[in-house]
Design a binder for these strands. Structure first.
Length: 481
RNA sequence: GGUGGGUUGGCCGAGAGGCGAGGCAACGGACUGCAAAUCCGUGUACACGGGUUCAAAUCCCGUACCCACCUCCA
């Protein structure tokens, strides 16, 4: 079976046919950098990183554009509240977001354009829309420019709505709009708004509306027609509807496929940006490792709602450690010169590929990995080294596609050598104690042997006896509620 | 009012007409000095009520509850 995706626009699973064979252009709506990212925010980053990785693994040449919105009403309002320049807030939050993505091994996109860097492209596009009769400058002197929804008959096609059935926004300020559903392409500078947040335009100084940036930047970096447009489910309307309407109206074919990820909710409710700190990425990472958080997200299908809970997160982390544990033991059993080859058409990778091809079926893909782990554990126990090498290589490869290879440098701890030196020191001490314990065991003095193990354990280190001798590891953090 | 999605075992979470995805937890067994790890085994799950069918968690009709979006939310 070939690669296929659920396309929000057509509401069905469609075979993926790229515009240009062997290439894929993806535009992902990134975040508005107005606050610290919580786990819900980064889901789309993780989900579309998996998409991007799978396309690359399937030999596509991928161009991946993920924007950041660095100027909008909320940024202006929040920065004013905090008494600092809007650009300082946006800059800082952008850094936070980058750190969160990096921690979770979300690969850097081909380019990460920011709205404020593309004002001329937007102005150009707005002018073209006016020229084509699909936009107009308000005649109330506000300097606003609106998209004329009534002039575009297929408006509403992406989200399956009819203009007449739409509820006019109760809170929307109609200002110079001809129809309450018209949306802003350009917003004239209002009194009290900082001069730094206003750019020159044919309609006076102002700033761009939200939707136009994505149309302009996608067009610039991916072309007027491109393959995949992604984002969170809530963006379907109005953001993506508007993007599509204005792009089509400007004569751009725009996206061939629309992919939307579902929510991470808490107690059944959407994670609101005003929620407490406990779900901010850095705080969650105090409880589980980044790779475990990523595994938790990847284990669910991108189109499924995830009800976030720390219990489920801990459970996922425990499950992932089972995979890691196998990798550790398998690596130790394989010859030192063993390297991970590109295992291809054979199982388990083939089953994994089938799952991934089916609209990124990561849950089924993870199940394939677990099956392989069980198989590998058997091979390990029976000393089938060649088979074990195959299984081990396949698992590493599959995990890498999901961005979950524990050996990935992205997950390496600490940059300073301190941690490594500390680890070496502990290793020497524990080894000494384990030697004493081994002597006691050889003497069948189990009371003494267990006493030594208990002492090591009290220091937070677990000891396991394996056929190749005792092995120690730092005990996993215990979850606390 | 309009549009869309959901309800699966103790828990998480797939599947989409016939064969019990997978994980976590639990229980039994093997292995072990004891553990740990690992392997083997153990479950008659699909919100409710009807219907279609040889066969329904899956299709149809209805009901209940939950959620999202309806103009600047991932």
């Amino acid at each position: 079976m070939s690669l296929r995706f659920y396309d929000t626009a057509t509401r069905e699973v469609r075979d993926f046919v790229p515009l240009e064979e062997g290439k894929a252009g993806i535009y992902l709506c990134g975040l508005t950098v107005q606050s610290e990212p919580h786990v819900g925010h980064i889901r789309s980053g993780v989900n579309f990183d998996v998409l991007q990785r799978w396309l690359r693994a399937s030999n596509y040449e991928v161009t991946f554009i993920r924007n950041t919105t660095d100027i909008d009403d909320k940024i202006l309002a929040k920065s004013a509240e905090q008494g600092r320049p809007w650009y300082n807030l946006a800059y800082e939050m952008s850094g936070e977001l980058t750190r969160a993505y990096a921690a979770l091994n979300v690969a850097r996109p081909t380019y990460e354009p920011a709205a404020t860097g593309h004002i001329p492209e937007m102005v150009e596009m707005i002018a073209s829309l006016i020229e084509r009769g699909h936009a107009y400058a308000a005649d109330d002197g506000s300097g606003d420019v609106y998209f004329d929804v009534r002039s575009w008959s297929s408006y509403g096609e992406l989200s399956g709505q009819k203009v007449d059935d739409m509820e006019a926004a109760a809170d929307a300020d109609p200002r110079g709009k001809r129809d309450p559903r018209d949306f802003a392409l350009w917003k004239g500078q209002k009194a009290g708004e900082p001069d730094t947040a206003a750019w020159p335009s044919p309609w006076g100084r102002g700033r761009p509306g939200w939707h136009i940036e994505c149309s302009a930047m996608a067009g610039k970096y991916l072309g007027r027609a491109f393959d995949i447009h992604g984002g969170g489910l809530d963006l379907r309307f109005p953001h993506h509807e508007n993007e599509q309407a204005q792009s089509h109206a400007a004569g751009h074919p725009f996206a061939s496929y629309w992919l939307h990820n579902a929510w991470i909710t808490t107690s059944g409710e959407k994670m609101s940006k005003s929620l407490g700190n406990s779900l901010l990425v850095p705080n969650v990472l105090e409880r589980v490792r980044a790779i475990e958080l990523r595994f938790y997200m990847v284990s669910a299908h991108y189109r499924s709602h995830v009800e976030f809970s720390f219990e489920a997160l801990d459970e996922a982390a425990a499950g992932f450690r089972r995979i890691e544990n196998f990798l550790d033991r398998a690596r130790a059993a394989l010859p030192a010169e063993f390297t991970v080859g590109t295992s291809s058409d054979a199982d388990p990778y083939r089953s994994f590929a089938e799952a991934m091809d089916d609209d990124l079926g990561t849950p089924a893909a993870v199940a394939v990995i677990y099956d392989a782990v069980r198989e590998g554990n058997k091979q390990l126990a029976e000393g089938q080294v060649a088979e074990l090498g195959h299984t081990y290589g396949a698992i590493r490869t599959m995990l890498d596609v999901l961005g979950l290879d524990p050996a990935d440098p992205a997950y390496a701890v600490g940059g300073s050598g301190d941690e490594e030196r500390l680890s070496a020191a502990v290793d020497a001490l524990v080894h000494g104690m384990l030697e004493q314990r081994n002597q006691a065991r050889a003497d069948k003095d189990y009371a003494a042997a267990d006493a030594i193990r208990d002492r090591i354990k009290a220091a937070g280190i677990d000891v396991e006896d394996t056929p190749s001798g005792p092995k120690w590891s730092l005990r996993d953090q215990q979850g606390n509620d």
